[in-house]
């Protein structure tokens, strides 16, 4: 029973500590994401829709492309990267200023795309070793 009490105490402690950063979000302890659109007005959908649905669009496109072989769809991750990669670093990842990473680190949503996909745009990636 001692063990149970110990486990319960630990659980309570964990629950009490974990949400702290979320509460602090409004107060400004966590910096707001910096989203700079370097090529405005060319997106496949209005910004409002992209913010809400980009993950669904990418998911459906990825299944159609990979499983059915449909190419040239508007919602393409490579097309996102070409437009949104930082002009300075050539990537959508790397820091708080980079397009994908800025929001995803702010909302603490794991970004799994780039475990496999290349986060650098071709205009930069072309200069790298193959």
């Amino acid at each position: 029973m001692k063990l149970l009490r110990l486990v319960a105490t630990l659980l309570f402690a964990a629950v009490a500590v974990l949400p702290a950063p979320t509460f602090a979000g409004g107060g400004g302890r966590t910096p707001k994401p910096v989203v700079s659109i370097e090529n405005p007005g060319k997106c496949v959908a209005p910004a409002e829709e992209m913010r809400r649905n980009h993950m669904e669009m990418l998911k459906h496109q990825r299944d159609r492309t990979l499983r059915q072989g449909i190419r040239g769809e508007p919602a393409s991750l490579n097309a996102c990267i070409e437009c949104h990669a930082s002009k300075r670093t050539g990537s959508v990842l790397g820091g708080k200023d980079n397009f994908c990473e800025s929001c995803h680190s702010y909302v603490a949503v794991k970004l799994d795309c780039f475990e496999c996909h290349q986060p650098k745009a071709k205009f930069k990636a072309a200069g790298l070793k193959p």
Binding site: N78, I81, E115, C116, H117, Q118, K120, K122, A125, L128, K129, P130
Partner: peptide, 15 residues
């Protein structure tokens, strides 16, 4: 872990 994939050929760790 991989970082230098060809943009047209995604591939990554653990798959």
């Amino acid at each position: 872990p991989l970082t230098e994939q060809n943009p047209e050929v995604p591939r990554g760790q653990g798959c």
